[in-house]
């Protein structure tokens, strides 16, 4: 690990100033410290933001949710308001990492976390995300766990977060505070596909701080849930996952929110699946028919072709679980 200076801040103004001056924010630190030890990350100055007043979950008007950026994953997962309004968020969090890591990691840090691609983590391997222009070792390497959607010539790494899949499905908004004041970014615009600039992972500017993630209100009752398929039963990143939320009224699906994880360079919103669900009556046949388009546009690599079929089945299964026809 390279040496760094350390500053603890307790108010937002000081934090943003320190970040604007080149400091790197640290919250839970579960990704950053690990990557600093691997020398993938080499910040010269850490700004500890854990004392900032961003530790609340509030229900917004109409049944939405605003989650403070410094809420720990474990706290959000267990929060009664979150559990009552968005089971999919609680489930995605509880299927993430381990109990220890969930006690440390925060929501803001979760959506800032970097890929677990082994070539990204290995500073002796070529990686365009870590060192632009050096190439992508995963393309011709061991790429069984890599992405099949949203990839580019430059990068095929998956986004590792589970709760980000729920946020993508629910069309959340990221609240930012920076030197120029506050702004909000749609979740779908916040996490960036690699394209030709894989080193740019979030649409966040120097000095900007995530203050909250807001989930918009949905009509009630809303049934929602998350499923995660892994190489082992627990404490593992997703091969595939699906976040589903459905609002059914009068026997007809009025609202469908669906996204997939483990398959994309960013959490993958499944608009085509949603379109096949809206206006239809829940049925076994409908789940199959809707999930059929889940992997449209997939570009599998040498070792991850299995994800195409697995993704469809994962989505179908979770539609059935949330839709409740069996």
């Amino acid at each position: 690990m390279y040496p760094f200076s350390y500053t603890r801040v307790s108010d937002l103004r000081t934090a943003v100033q320190a970040g604007s001056d080149g400091g790197r924010y640290i919250a839970g630190g579960t990704t950053l410290v690990d990557l600093m030890r691997e020398t993938v990350e080499r910040p010269g100055k850490l700004v500890d933001i854990s004392a900032l007043p961003l530790r609340e979950v509030t229900a917004t008007k109409g049944g939405g949710l605003r989650i403070g950026a410094l809420m720990r994953m474990a706290e959000v997962a267990a929060h009664p308001t979150v559990r009552a309004l968005y089971a999919v968020i609680s489930q995605a969090l509880e299927l993430s990492a381990s109990a220890q890591l969930r006690n440390m990691a925060t929501i803001g840090g979760n959506i800032m976390q970097r890929t677990r691609c082994t070539y990204f983590r290995d500073v002796t391997a070529s990686c365009n995300r870590r060192e632009p222009g050096t190439g992508c070792a995963a393309r011709e390497g061991f790429n069984r766990t890599h992405a099949i959607l949203g990839t580019s010539e430059q990068c095929v790494a998956t986004h590792p977060s589970d709760v980000a899949v729920a946020f993508a499905a629910l069309e959340a908004t990221v609240h930012l505070l920076g030197p120029a004041g506050e702004r909000t970014v749609a979740f779908s615009d916040f996490l960036l596909r690699p394209d030709n600039t894989p080193q740019r992972e979030q649409s966040i500017r120097q000095g900007e701080l995530i203050t909250a993630v807001e989930v918009p209100a949905q009509p009630r009752p809303l049934r929602s849930g998350y499923v995660k398929v892994r190489d082992r039963q627990s404490y593992e990143f997703a091969l595939t996952s699906a976040a589903v939320a459905l609002h059914v009224r009068g026997g007809v699906i009025q609202v469908a929110k669906v996204a997939a994880g483990g398959v994309g360079t960013v959490p993958w919103k499944l608009s085509a699946v949603e379109q096949r669900l809206i206006g239809q009556r829940p049925s076994e046949a409908l789940w199959t028919q809707a999930a059929e388009v889940a992997a449209d546009g997939a570009q599998p690599l040498a070792h991850n072709n299995f994800k195409v079929e697995l993704l469809k089945r994962t989505v179908e299964r979770q539609l059935r679980v949330v839709g409740g026809t069996r």
Binding site: Y6, T30, A99, N103, M104
Partner: peptide, 9 residues
């Protein structure tokens, strides 16, 4: 709270 001390500065 239980945490991983290796990732705690």
């Amino acid at each position: 709270r239980r945490v991983n001390s290796c990732l705690t500065l």
